[in-house]
Write a protein that binds this DNA or RNA. Structure first.
Lengths: 172, 172
DNA sequence: CTTGATATGTCAACGACACTGACGTATCCG
DNA sequence: CGGATACGTCAGTGTCGTTGACATATCAAG
């Protein structure tokens, strides 16, 4: 299988690892470039995008849960959430069972902006998927899943349904 | 090469795209967590890591070239490069053909630190590769390569061939 | 050899985004 | 009632990026 019939299965040479590292570095940067440009025009940044994304993904999410996903402090979230609320992108509502909670949701303006940001990345990702092909996409998911820590894997695993068998991973 | 509009092979549902987005978000964060922790003890940050990495990767690199790779300003680089030089991790030497250039290389201390940071990520990546399997790794590379812009693709592409890699060869 | 471009360094100010620490308030729960 | 929890906020700090301006050494060309 491997060109050089060296070791049997997967010979993890350093070069191979460094290649992957650079793919992650350049890939992540180029993947976020589109939204970054859009947000810059609105005086917002990547942090705003993350909030819009996860609030859109989990309508009615609590502040605590959002903090856990983003792994930032409430002070950091506040700095970015306040403008989003003031700008009419996000609304708060008090929890019905627990009135201390402020459940977050997107307004229609928030949904529109999130959609715009999403489409920018969707286009790039869809092209990469199409060019790579179905089996490659499946491999991409497997490898990326292996990079996630236990917490993130659990979070993302909740919706892994259609993505095929999850990686056989030991979650230390 | 741009077969637009057909959903034949790969049905790019939104859910699938969002799943990949989250893999990239969580994956990149968890992938950088190891080095971040090591660097924090040394009073350094991710920017220092990137300089160590690429200087180690390209010994004798010019400042201009490093700036082009990182896509930051020389002021930003200076703030991070100066401590690395003062700390004995990086050395400068004047270019032999062009004495205006300051060619950058790692000292043995720099190599040791870079190696330590590398090993932290290598362990995680190697485990993810092993768990996912060879074909999955190949798919991972294909998809990630598709996310790179032309410039980054050319940059990493320079060593896809020269690596003598068991990588199946052509890209995309 | 002067002249203009290039490679690099640096000062100064600023912005985004994270942090810690501390305090205040509303609400839940036992 | 009283402690724990959910959230908000003020104040200060640090990393890492930016723009703008200016200095210096060196190259390359007329």
């Amino acid at each position: 299988m491997d060109g050089r019939g060296t070791a049997g299965l997967l010979y993890l040479r350093e070069e191979e690892i460094r290649f992957a590292m650079e793919l992650l570095f350049y890939g992540y940067r180029d993947f976020t470039a589109g939204p970054d440009a859009i947000l810059a025009e609105l005086g917002m940044g990547r942090a705003h995008h993350r909030v819009l994304y996860f609030v859109g993904r989990h309508p009615g999410i609590t502040v605590s849960e959002l903090l856990a996903i983003l792994r930032i402090t409430k002070q950091s979230l506040g700095r970015v959430l306040q403008p989003l609320i003031a700008g009419g992108y996000v609304v708060q509502s008090r929890g019905r069972s627990d009135r201390r909670q402020r459940l977050l949701s997107l307004t229609s303006a928030g949904e529109a902006l999130e959609r715009r940001l999403f489409e920018s990345q969707r286009a790039l990702l869809a092209r990469a998927f199409r060019d790579a092909g179905g089996p490659a996409v499946e491999g991409f998911r497997k490898v990326m899943l292996g990079l996630l820590g236990a917490e993130a894997r659990a979070r993302v695993g909740l919706r892994v349904s259609g993505a095929g068998a999850p990686v056989a991973g030991k979650v230390a």
